[in-house]
């Protein structure tokens, strides 16, 4: 879980081109959207593509996505759950 969280932080910074934000700056419990990291709907699309491409998990249900992308912690738990770990 800890390694996955670290990997996700690196990927989020990289794929979203977050200037002046390092992976270490991201609080894994903080909201990804709105407050917290301040991501928006376009970033959400990028993250959906990231999860599908890198982890083989398709997110087709909006409510499932909303819960999964609440924070880095919830996203990591969602991925592990879908991978059956």
């Amino acid at each position: 879980m800890h390694q996955l969280i670290s990997d996700l932080k690196v990927k989020i910074v990289d794929i979203l081109n977050l200037e002046d934000v390092s992976p270490e700056d991201i609080d894994e419990a903080a909201p990804l959207f709105g407050e917290g990291l301040g991501l928006d709907s376009l970033d959400a699309l990028e993250l959906v593509v990231l999860v599908e491409k890198d982890y083989g998990i398709k997110i087709t249900d909006i409510e499932v996505g909303r819960q999964a992308f609440a924070s880095v912690n919830t996203l990591a738990r969602f991925i592990l759950e879908k991978q059956g770990k």
Binding site: N17, L18, E19, D20, D40, D43
Partner: peptide
């Protein structure tokens, strides 16, 4: 070009 070069206030979307 980086946003911090031109402004002291944050701009979350600039990088993308």
């Amino acid at each position: 070009l980086r946003w911090r070069m031109v402004s002291g206030s944050a701009h979350d979307r600039f990088g993308r």
